[in-house]
């Protein structure tokens, strides 16, 4: 039970609540809230010394954010 693991679990739970029930119920606020469980999961991966998994996870999170921004942009343009 390192402090990284405990803090990562706390931030993961807060981020999951924030992403499941976003305060203004829009796509953009849900996308911004989706960053927080990513940071918590990163901290849990740090506690298990998985360095290659961590770099891959961060890169995939950035690329998926880019894809989701394109999707939301297209959805906003269609309305």
């Amino acid at each position: 039970m390192t402090p990284e693991f405990i803090l990562g679990c706390i931030i993961l739970i807060i981020g999951v609540i924030a992403a499941a029930f976003p305060r203004p119920k829009t796509y953009l606020s849900r996308l911004i809230s989706l960053e927080i469980p990513g940071l918590g999961l990163l901290l849990i991966m740090i506690a298990y010394d998985e360095m290659l998994a961590l770099l891959t996870f961060v890169a995939v999170t950035a690329i998926s954010t880019f894809v989701l921004v394109r999707v939301i942009e297209r959805k906003e343009a269609a309305q």
Binding site: I11, I14, G15, I17, A18, R23, P24, L28, I32
Partner: peptide, 21 residues
């Protein structure tokens, strides 16, 4: 840890999107 948790709770409570970022 207080810095990180205050930031995470504040991201949930703010309404403006710039404040969330």
């Amino acid at each position: 840890a207080a810095v990180a948790i205050i930031g995470a709770v504040s991201a949930h409570l703010q309404h403006d999107r710039f404040n969330k970022l």
